[in-house]
Each structure stands twice: as C-alpha cells, then as structure tokens.
Amino acid sequence: MAANCSLRPCLPSFNLQLSPIHIHSSSYYHTFNNTKLTTPPTASSPIQHLHQGFGFGIEANKKKNNNSFSRTLAVRHLTGSLTSADGLRFAIVVARFNEIITKLLLEGALDTFKKYSVKEEDIDVVWVPGSFEIGVVAEKLGKSRKYQAILCIGAVIRGDTSHYDAVANSAASGVLSAGLNSGVPCIFGVLTCDDMEQALNRAGGKSGNKGAEAALTAIEMASLFEHHLKH
C-alpha cells in the first residue's frame, strides 16, 4: 500500500458544473454540509460548485426541455416564399360586375406581382361577367396545368334582396371547389361588402387593397406547391 494512502475508501474525482437552481417557494429550506440556507439561490448567485461530498444540481425541466427541443428540430416546416416567384405563372379571373371596384383590385394585384418580380408575360387576366362565374373558369384554368396559382377577383355588394347572399356564398364555394378539383391553389379575392363605401375602402382606401393582399397569398401558395408539394 502506498505510504500516502488514507484509510478511507478512494473515491473518483468529480467536477460537477451545476446550472442555476430556481426554486419558486417562499419557505425554501436546505441543508448541505451542515450549512443551512434560508433563502433560495438566484440566477445572480447560483450554486456553481460542490467542493465536498456528493451533490446533485437538478433543473426539473432540463431533460424534458431537451427532449422537446430535439423533437422540434426533427419536424419539417414547409412554407411558401415570396422571394422565389421566378418562373411561376399566374392567372387572374376578374368579374366585370362592379367594375369600378374590381379594376382597382386588379391594379393592386398587378402592382404586387410586379413588386415581387413576377414577369408580365407570366400573368394572364381573364374577365367574366360576375362573381358567380368565377369558380367554373378558375377550375378550367387550373386543370390546364399552365399556372401555379389562380387569383379570383370580384365584388359582391349587398342590396335590398337576398340575391347578395346567394352570389356571395356561390362565389366562395366555387373558388374553393375550383382549387380542390384542379389541385391548383385558387385564391379568394372576392369582396363581400354591405355598401359601396366599404368596397372602396378595401380597394385601395383606408383598409388597404385586398387585391394586393390576395396576390401575396397567390405567390406564397404557388411557391409552396411548386417547391414542396409538387408530385
């Protein structure tokens, strides 16, 4: 036996790096190495080292958080991009009824396409009599496989009869069906307003231009389908 070996068992040396211990209790009481701590350690004065005996610094949620973080990293997040519109083609179906509104929406959409580098030759505008006719034409364009997204623009303004409800509901369901049946994103850019003032406010007035907003949606959806969901 070596001369300098003590009679107590030889224990391996540990260098424990402890993270701050956060205790949410006003009645915290802890004894370690015969030392009483009447106040919990804080982030500004954490217990970093235990120099005598064995000790364990535990962060209650550390393991759980690490596992959760690992699972998050494994998830694929797919999203369309507004900066990858090069080569994408778009069709815009525009209702002629309430043309004073739909023209402003169309101008907003075209300006947005230009701003995001969509070439003029990659955009086709198709006019239809009214919002009721948008869906069938959008579906036909989608099935042609010439376009990555179809933007549908119209304006339905409430009148004195229930005609408004019939047209508004039919326009919405028609655009939805067009996208589902063709497999091409069909973007709903049809205004449904109570009066002309509301429509003007949403066609470039104080509420912005909904045609421009719909164009952004068309670019993002076209990019998503083309770069991530294309078979």
Results as ranks from 00 to 15, higher is better:
A215L: 00
L88E: 01
L151A: 10
T83S: 13
L229D: 08
V126L: 08
K210H: 07
S170H: 14
C5P: 01
S84N: 13
E139F: 03
S131V: 02
S144W: 10
Q17G: 04
L37A: 10
H227K: 11
D160P: 00
G57E: 13
S177Q: 14
F54A: 07
V128S: 03
Y147G: 04
A3W: 12
R145Q: 14
I21V: 15
I92T: 13
Q17S: 12
L224V: 07
F32Y: 15
A109S: 14
E107A: 14
T39V: 10
S117Y: 11
V128H: 01
L88D: 00
G108M: 07
E133G: 00
S131F: 02
I134Y: 03
P20R: 04
K230N: 11
V118C: 03
K36L: 11
E197V: 12
E99V: 05
S6T: 08
G189L: 00
E107M: 06
A149S: 15
I21M: 12
S162V: 00
V128E: 12
G159A: 07
Y29M: 04
D122V: 03
M196Y: 05
S68L: 08
N65F: 13
L73C: 10
I92M: 12
K119M: 06
F69Q: 11
R145A: 13
E99L: 02
T83Y: 12
L16D: 14
A109N: 05
G53K: 02
Q198G: 07
F54D: 12
S70G: 05
A109M: 10
G208C: 06
A171W: 03
V184I: 15
